[in-house]
Simulated scan of single mutants.
Amino acid sequence: MSSDLDKRVEEFFRTYQDRGMKKWAGFYLSDYTAKINKDKKRRNTVYIKKKNNADCKIKLNTLEK
């Protein structure tokens, strides 16, 4: 059994061709585009300044008089 496994492992490593950077480029590209999309979403967020309560009370007081 182990000799059969040894033969299969030896055959695998003898014929295996490493893809090198091609293999990792996909991971890098997906991580990079995810970061770019996250930053783009953050930059496109528009925050609207809300009026504080003091401004509303001042307007109500002037309308009541």
Score class of each variant (00 low, 15 high):
23 K>A: 13
37 N>S: 08
34 A>Q: 14
36 I>L: 15
18 D>F: 13
39 D>E: 11
9 V>S: 10
23 K>Q: 11
41 K>C: 00
35 K>S: 13
17 Q>N: 10
20 G>W: 00
7 K>F: 04
42 R>C: 01
7 K>Y: 12
19 R>N: 06
17 Q>C: 05
30 S>C: 00
27 F>V: 06
20 G>P: 00
12 F>P: 02
37 N>G: 03
14 R>V: 08
9 V>W: 05
31 D>Q: 06
14 R>M: 08
12 F>Q: 06
8 R>S: 11
36 I>Y: 13
42 R>N: 04
23 K>C: 01
7 K>G: 05
29 L>R: 09
38 K>P: 00
38 K>M: 00
21 M>A: 12
39 D>M: 12
36 I>W: 01
28 Y>M: 14
29 L>Y: 07
39 D>I: 05
10 E>N: 07
40 K>D: 04
36 I>P: 02
16 Y>W: 09
25 A>K: 09
7 K>Q: 12
19 R>V: 06
29 L>H: 02
42 R>Q: 06
24 W>A: 08
14 R>I: 01
28 Y>L: 14
40 K>Q: 03
26 G>R: 09
25 A>C: 12
20 G>M: 04
11 E>H: 08
19 R>F: 06
12 F>S: 04
9 V>R: 15
10 E>H: 09
17 Q>I: 15
15 T>M: 01
41 K>M: 02
14 R>C: 03
24 W>D: 05
8 R>L: 07
35 K>Y: 04
19 R>T: 15
18 D>Q: 05
12 F>Y: 12
15 T>R: 00
39 D>A: 05
20 G>T: 01
38 K>H: 01
6 D>F: 07
13 F>L: 12
39 D>Q: 13
33 T>Q: 15
32 Y>E: 02
23 K>I: 08
42 R>D: 07
27 F>S: 04
32 Y>M: 08
24 W>F: 15
16 Y>M: 10
36 I>Q: 08
35 K>G: 00
31 D>G: 15
7 K>A: 12
20 G>Q: 01
13 F>P: 00
39 D>S: 10
24 W>N: 08
20 G>L: 02
19 R>W: 10
11 E>N: 11
15 T>A: 11
11 E>T: 01
14 R>S: 11
6 D>P: 00
26 G>I: 05
11 E>Q: 14
7 K>V: 01
42 R>E: 11
6 D>C: 06
32 Y>K: 07
23 K>P: 02
33 T>W: 11
6 D>H: 11
20 G>S: 14
9 V>H: 05
28 Y>E: 05
32 Y>H: 10
43 R>C: 09
34 A>I: 02
9 V>Y: 13
24 W>G: 06
38 K>S: 03
13 F>Y: 04
16 Y>E: 01
12 F>V: 09
25 A>I: 10
27 F>C: 04
30 S>E: 07
28 Y>S: 05
42 R>T: 04
31 D>H: 02
21 M>T: 14
8 R>H: 06
20 G>H: 03
22 K>M: 13
40 K>F: 03
31 D>R: 08
7 K>M: 04
37 N>R: 09
6 D>A: 14
15 T>P: 01
38 K>Q: 09
21 M>Q: 12
41 K>Q: 06
31 D>P: 03
18 D>N: 15
30 S>D: 00
12 F>W: 11
32 Y>C: 08
